[in-house]
Design a protein around this nucleic acid. Structure first.
Lengths: 338, 338
DNA sequence: GTGAAAGCGCTAACAA
DNA sequence: TTGTTAGCGCTTTCAC
């Protein structure tokens, strides 16, 4: 009876000789239930192999127990680390993580809307969602923006501009490079845009001009390879390449040497993020360490905190801007400690 | 009234002057509703900004409208492609995709169980979940195993052994290499295990012995770098390195040249998967093209098909073994067309 | 401390 | 063709 499916609260209640309310209380560790009753119910749960239905409690609580994460893509160690950070916090709270990669979908806006309907809160990577849509969604459920800026939202980021300024200055001052070029598509990536701005800041401060426009193919490893081939074909290699992230730098690193260009002898290279591979490639990669995992976990904490107290109609989160620290990591690819 | 929250079927029904059943029918494009009624209801939906609650319909349907994907990790382009494949099919069906990376979690088994409770079906990458647990879960909901083998389950995979045999034979026969070594951690990865077996097949057929044990650091780019450094340190470089996947090969490619080892002059290298970067790195990477995206989409189709007809108690899927074709891609890193 | 009962939003017989 | 009604599984007042 009661179907052949999984046992429900009712089954447990009957088996334990209590009411469904009591079963529910035990599930939630409600301290009012007596030790004896409690044990009896727990035993019945064991005996029947009962697990609360996510569907049932979801409806009653009006909560999906799911966190949405919106990223441009899913590939790449950067996003993996971000997701892990978010997931570690979410798992703790019994919340699942639902990831959406927008750059791969023509119907990204639609998809974000869909996601918003099935989650209790959203973590959004800067540049993936138009600002107005973001604002609209933030009125409906808690949203935290990662690696982006927005006056009315909660944001978690690093100061990429300052970091890029510092790293670029290092290339100029410590290694005497004067012809520097930026690699990375700035469009649609606030993070990259900030880094490029910092790059330009440093050049301006040193009285230098960019050695050519940024090479804007994309932000993944393969685009680094593409950039390397393009630069090589142009035959006008700069002294140093400032890559928007480590992935791009690896793409360059897996290509230029094969084309007969030695690093850092012929060209110096720096990246951003300090991915694991950075310390292992040869030459080891000079970069800026970013707390990517923390970015994700912090964002998740903020969203979940808002989620939990979401009882009434829902009030948007008060704006906040958390800036996490970065740290330059000087290795071989810039010419240091060769 | 009716709370300040989102409008419900009841609100729409009242507004349109029909019953909730009719509203539900319109939502599901039930052809029985008259054009007039239909239009009136649609208008009311528009007016009120109604969207069906995932929670409500979920409970009624007893369906989560979510597909689970279990992978070892989330980084890496291989998994990104797999997820995209699955997601493209899922999105079509209005189903969300929930990804779980097991290698990063100490409580992987627990996590898989949790996931099973919130999804309608699971796609599992071979090697991520113990066989017995897999069997147990498959009795509860549709499960498709990707890149793995299992007698009682639906599996979608490629014939990695044959592919590896062919590629290895190429190194031996076309390029005359005799001292070959395998790079990649076979433990816990059926895919890698199969490729290693194929590698050995080819060597045996040629009457050759492996030039040393496999270098088993892992399966990601950084472990390729690690392997490269180890091999270089050992000072006994083989003629050719057969990497378990392209990621590892890239790690090697971003490291060996920097250590003064030219590819393919000093060492030939081949990978598996044919990631985008393979055609762009220098030297371009010889590899085996795998339909990773199709692996994901096929798996998703199979799971969803089973999901849809899951009406009664649920019968496990009948075992099936789909083998998708692969294709060797000969490029520069093996010594071809240099 | 425990139980009865009224929902949460939607679907699906069954009636009309 | 449309409406009525009884759930789906769980939570949560409000009585007892």
């Amino acid at each position: 009876m009661a179907g052949t499916g999984r046992p429900t609260v009712r089954d447990v209640a009957r088996h334990a000789g209590v009411s469904v309310a009591t079963v529910s209380r035990v599930t939630h560790d409600d301290p009012v239930v007596t030790g004896g009753t409690r044990d009896r119910v727990l035993a019945s749960m064991q005996a029947l192999g009962y697990t609360p239905s996510v569907l049932g409690s979801g409806l009653a609580y009006q909560r999906h127990h799911t966190l949405g994460v919106v990223l441009p893509g899913l590939g790449g160690p950067y996003f993996a680390a971000l997701i892990q950070g978010a997931e570690s916090v979410a798992a703790e709270a019994g919340v699942a993580v639902n990831v959406l990669g927008t750059h791969l979908r023509h119907d990204a806006v639609q998809a974000v809307h869909q996601l918003a309907l099935r989650t209790d809160g959203l973590i959004v990577q800067g540049g993936t969602v138009p600002d107005d849509l973001l604002g609209a969604i933030a009125e409906k459920l808690p949203v935290v923006l990662v690696a982006g800026e927005h006056p009315d939202l909660v944001t978690v980021r690093t100061d990429g501009r300052a970091a890029a300024r510092g790293l670029t200055a290092h290339l100029v001052e410590a290694h005497g490079h004067r012809r520097l070029r930026f690699v990375g598509a700035t469009h649609g990536s606030p993070d990259t845009t900030a880094r490029y701005a910092g790059f330009r800041d440093a050049l301006a401060a040193a009285g230098l001009a960019e050695h050519g426009e940024p090479v804007r193919h994309g932000l993944e490893a393969r685009y680094g390879a593409m950039a390397a081939r393009q630069l090589h074909a142009e035959g006008d290699l700069p002294d140093a390449l400032v890559c928007a992230n480590d992935e791009l730098a690896f793409g360059v690193l897996a290509t230029l040497p094969g084309l007969g260009v030695a690093i850092p002898r012929d060209v110096a290279i720096v990246g951003f993020d300090d991915l694991d591979l950075a310390a292992l490639a040869s030459p080891t990669l000079t970069t800026v360490h970013q707390p990517v995992h923390d970015l994700g976990s912090t964002a998740a904490e903020l969203v979940l905190a808002a989620t939990r107290r979401s009882r009434e109609p829902f009030a948007p989160l008060p704006p906040d801007d958390r800036v996490l620290p970065t740290r330059p990591v000087l290795r071989e690819s810039c010419g240091c400690s060769t």
